[in-house]
């Protein structure tokens, strides 16, 4: 993160030095928008342009043959009454892209699995893409997730693998034109982290039994006298409980912040072009933005991997917990 902000500052300083300042300030938003950035309609402040791109909305931009190369589509609303409160369960931009990510993820893995099974039936081993995917899944299974999950952790493999591929596809959604990253929304990462939390606690209950699981909540060491144990318990129990909630919280913030940060930087780079309003300066920020986009591809994989890996580690930790 620090690396990124330093990098962004460096780029901004460089750009500012190379641009003729007077001209830049005079032509705020005067040049036509390059078409890789839809949604730039009015000369607004940079924050006003960046925020709608990274936050959720009831509207979506779709490719369109008009001056802006984009049309706005309003998504339907679906109010559901629960008691006295009303919740609108209508899809938002992030829901649409999440569905798209899930669909692509499913089609990708399902077709690969079909090809895998077919090729294995014919030749005894998979071919081409399915073989590549198999090696990825086997690597994740044998080298990363199973050691983290501990003995007999096979049952949790589909969960962490799903987390990995789902988060990966959602991360990549933001890198396509007109796309948006659902994982750049704290509600999405939070819900996924809650799923990981529930999986972790359930794994703890299954692996340790009711009394063993309670010992991960209430600090109650069996090899101490009551006089020592009681004050220790009073101090340590809140620590244990906070520890339980810190993990999903860290998962939530890490993924959310990483995804947001990359997009903010890319948008800020592109925003420089319009801030300076000069064709001359455009290649530098665009080049930088492309560099950051490439970095974002890497980050998309890394963050998906970290999210799934940490979920596996948390599940493995609680399964191996013995006080």
């Amino acid at each position: 993160m620090r690396f990124r902000s330093i990098f962004a500052t460096m780029v901004m300083v460089l750009a500012a030095l190379t641009a003729p300042p007077t001209r830049a300030l005079a032509q705020q938003g005067g040049t036509p928008a390059p078409e890789q950035e839809p949604g730039l309609k009015h000369p607004l402040g940079p924050a006003d342009l960046i925020m709608p791109h990274i936050t959720d909305a009831r509207t979506m931009e779709v490719p369109c043959f008009n001056r802006d190369w984009s049309c706005e589509v309003r998504l339907p609303s679906w109010p559901v009454h629960i008691g006295s409160t009303t919740i609108d369960l209508g899809p938002t931009k992030h829901v649409v892209f999440m569905m798209l990510a899930a669909l692509l993820c499913f089609l990708f893995l399902y077709s690969a699995a079909r090809a895998h099974v077919r090729a294995t039936g014919e030749d005894g081993h998979p071919r081409g893409f399915a073989a590549g995917l198999e090696s990825v899944i086997l690597y994740l299974r044998d080298e990363i997730f199973l050691p983290a999950l501990g003995h007999h952790g096979d049952g949790y493999l589909p969960f962490v693998l799903t987390l990995f591929f789902f988060v990966l596809f959602m991360n990549l959604m933001g890198l396509i034109p007109y796309g948006s990253t659902p994982t750049g929304n704290i509600n999405v990462t939070g819900t996924l982290a809650i799923c990981a939390f529930i999986a972790t606690e359930t794994a703890g209950m299954i692996a340790l039994g009711p009394s063993g699981y309670l010992k991960t909540v209430v600090y109650w060491p069996s090899d101490m006298s009551l006089g020592v144990k009681l004050p220790l318990t009073l101090v340590m129990t809140p620590v244990e409980i906070i520890g339980k909630f810190t993990k999903p919280f860290a998962l939530t913030i890490r993924l959310f912040a990483n995804m947001i940060a990359g997009h903010v930087i890319v948008l800020a780079m592109i925003g420089l072009v319009f801030t300076f309003g000069s064709w001359l300066i455009a290649p530098a920020p665009i080049g930088m933005a492309i560099g950051i986009m490439l970095l974002e591809v890497l980050v998309a994989f890394i963050q998906a991997f970290i999210f799934a890996l940490l979920s596996a580690v948390f599940i493995g930790q609680i399964r191996a917990a013995h006080h």
């Binding site: 369960l89 899930a102 893995l109 690969a112 699995a113 493999l157 589909p158 789902f166 659902p182 819900t191």
Partner: peptide, 26 residues
């Protein structure tokens, strides 16, 4: 609503992938 959809999509994807993708491959 986003949390709701996230949960639904994740669970559906989880069961679909477990049954149709990961199980056959493994």
């Amino acid at each position: 609503n986003l949390m709701f959809w996230t949960l639904v999509i994740f669970l559906v994807l989880f069961f679909a992938l477990s049954k149709l993708a990961f199980k056959p491959i493994t």
